[in-house]
Amino acid sequence: MTRLSTFDKALLNLLQGDIPICSHPFAEMASRLGTNEETVLSRVRELKAAGFLRRIGTFFDSNRLGYQGTLIALKVEPSELNAVAEAVNRYPGATHNYEREDQYNLWFTLLTPNAEYESNILAEIRSLRGVEDMLRLKANKKYKINVQFKLQ
C-alpha cells in the first residue's frame, strides 16, 4: 500500500470537503496547499489510480431531488446469499449493499422516485429463492451524512 505523505493527507482532507465552484478548481486548491495546479491534478490522479478515492463528484440530497430512501434488511438462507446479493446489486436504486453479521445478513439501501416503484422492486426481491424475511425501514430525518475521514 502506498504510504500517504503529509502533502497527500492535506490534499485528501481538502478534496473531501468542497471542490471550488470556479473555472479552475484545482488551481484554487493548489493555492490553498501552497503548490501549483499541475501538482495537485497529477497527485489526485495517482491517488485515484492507487484506489484511495472511491469517487470524486457530486453528492445530491436524494429527498430534494424527489427520491425516497429505505433501508432493507433481508434474512437469507446462507447457501443463497451470493445469488441474492448479486440480484440486489442489479437494481440501480440499490446503492449500498452489505453482508452483515446477523440473522438479517444482507442490508441494502434503495432509492426510488415513488412508493409504487419501491414496492414493485421489493416484491421481486422478496420472492427470490432463499429470502426468508424482509424488514423495510423507511428513512425519516437524516441527522448526519458525512463520509469524511480526517487524515492526520
Partner: peptide
C-alpha cells in the same frame, strides 16, 4: 447548492484503504 439539492462536491475515500 443554495437550494441544498447538492450536499457536497468532493471526494469519498475508500475507508478500508485509509
Amino acid at each position: 447548492i443554495d437550494e441544498k439539492k447538492i450536499r457536497k462536491m468532493g471526494a469519498v475515500l475508500r475507508h478500508r484503504e485509509v
